[in-house]
Design a protein around this nucleic acid. Structure first.
Length: 438
RNA sequence: GGUCCCAUCGUCCAGUGGCCUAGGACACAGCCCUUUCAAGGCUGCGACACGGGUUCAAAUCCCGUUGGGACCGCCA
């Protein structure tokens, strides 16, 4: 039968995990999980100048944040290690020597260079791009081992993919032109090709390759902006792939079962923040209240709010009150600060927009409201409706001042929901502060 | 410049010769709901780059043009 699927994500530790890399890692992970195969993390640190341990750590942390766990790789270990190219030098040298002995490569100083054969067609069937064929004559000789003893990318990839038993090479489309070079090396060593599947590029709003200029480029920036891993995962999965139906908001598990490499699209995709916002909001709505609280809490703390003054249930319930308001955890935190503290309310509002006559009306209404036996939103609303009708006052004329006094904002969830959640005492305290209650 | 890749609404996807006067989602506009804003519901705007073929029939196949992109490093 088919052998176990083994795929790898092979970043070079010369920067943080950016959107493009995360996308590639994600598709590899999806393919491994879909097939019950192995997802391998391999660090391609052959650039001595730019590779650092710090970057390696950030990349791994970024993957963990996205939930892309690897079965073999640094930290985790595995039977095909080491998983850092700088630790596999003997392997690269061994095969390079072999190539030299067979006359397929030659030395130039301490470097070893592969001699490109002429007149050889190099072809492979890409799972997403179809058959791609190039004549070897269009290729130059390529360096295998650099003067510093390190292997080059195009060489090390071949050795490692073969030696690690990689069955599917899934990577960015920018590697399509590199593939024929690697094919020559596979051929020279008499090795079978893995299956290749190239992924479309991800572009910025200006349709140029995504870079720092396009805002968020490292996955951490998404975390800091208040996006949750599940939605970034969901969003990234939708770039270049779809299950074929209209379902766009899905869980990891659903993506795993639906994913098909053959359904990957060829056209480059533009990274659209608006869509990410929407997907994040959808995921936020689906969240368990306590989990949502964990997501929002750091942002409240960042704003200096006394989170610890309240019980977990109260805080979680406060967020539930928001009912989908806010596209990110950061926004949700900003939209709900008044549940955590009265301070920001006072900073935003001073009650000076209400004249004495209006205040008198508010005092009458609020006085009765505070005496309601049932401190529930529905009961308060019902009371407010009949009271406003009897007193010929518009609902908004009592609801808006109430909202301003309780939240300090002109925008909030239903004001009686807010009052209910704050509790009778806290509501009274705030109303009194503004002279809206005796 | 050489080689390779791509081309459906502003954006992400559906579409693999007839079901397409091209479908969904985001964004945008309007309406409904309504104590505000969201959410939700409804409606609207909006695309097969162009030109040739092939075929009874093409968004779907072929060729060309144009436009994008990638690679061409002792970077990965």
């Amino acid at each position: 039968m088919n052998k176990t699927v083994r795929v790898r994500f092979a970043p070079s530790p010369t920067g943080a995990l950016h959107v493009g890399g995360a996308h590639t890692a994600l598709f590899n992970w999806l393919w491994a999980r879909h097939n019950g195969g192995k997802f391998i993390l391999r660090i391609e640190d052959t650039d001595r100048e730019r590779s650092t341990q710090e970057y390696e750590d950030t990349i791994m942390a970024g993957m963990r944040w996205l939930g892309l766990d690897w079965d073999e790789g640094p930290v985790k270990g595995g039977d095909y290690g080491p998983y850092r190219q700088s630790e596999r030098l003997d392997l690269y040298h061994k095969f390079a020597e072999q190539l030299v002995e067979e006359g397929k490569a030659y030395r130039e100083g301490t470097a070893i260079i592969f001699k490109t054969p002429s007149g050889v067609p190099l072809a492979f069937d890409d799972v997403v791009y179809g058959r791609i064929e190039v004549m070897s004559d269009t290729l130059k000789d390529t360096v295998l081992i650099k003067s510093d003893g390190m292997p080059t990318y195009n060489y090390a990839v071949v050795i490692d993919d073969h030696c690690m038993g990689i069955t599917h090479v899934i990577r960015g489309e920018d590697h399509i032109s590199n593939t024929p070079k690697q094919l020559m090396i596979f051929d020279a060593l008499g090795w079978e090709y893995p299956v290749f599947g190239h992924l479309p590029m991800i572009l910025g709003k200006d349709k140029k390759k995504l870079s720092k200029r396009h805002g968020a480029t490292s996955v951490y920036e998404f975390r800091d902006m208040g996006y949750m891993p599940d939605s970034v995962f969901n969003f990234l999965a939708l770039l270049g792939w779809s299950a074929g139906d209209d379902k766009e908001v899905f869980s990891r598990e659903e993506a795993v079962s639906l994913f098909e490499l053959s359904r990957v699209i060829r056209r480059a995709a533009v990274f659209d923040m608006d869509k990410l916002d929407h997907i994040n909001q959808e995921h936020l709505k689906l969240l368990d209240p306590m989990v949502r609280l964990e997501l929002v809490e750091p942002f409240w703390r960042e704003m200096g709010l006394p989170v610890d003054d309240h019980g977990r249930e109260y805080l979680a319930q406060s967020l539930t009150c928001l009912e989908g308001r806010g596209k990110t955890a950061r926004e949700a935190a900003a939209y709900s600060d008044y549940f955590v503290s009265f301070k920001p309310v006072k900073e935003r509002y001073d009650g000076s927009d209400v004249d004495e006559e209006q205040k008198a009306t508010l005092r009458r209404f609020n006085g009765e409201l505070l005496n309601l036996t049932d401190w529930k939103a529905a009961a308060m609303e019902e009371f407010a409706r009949s009271w406003s009708a009897e007193n010929s006052v518009k609902m908004r004329d009592i609801a808006m001042p109430l909202r301003m006094a309780l939240t300090g904002m002109k925008v909030s969830p239903g004001v009686f929901e807010v009052a209910g959640q704050l509790g009778r005492e806290e509501a009274a305290r705030r109303l009194r502060h503004f002279g809206f209650l005796d």
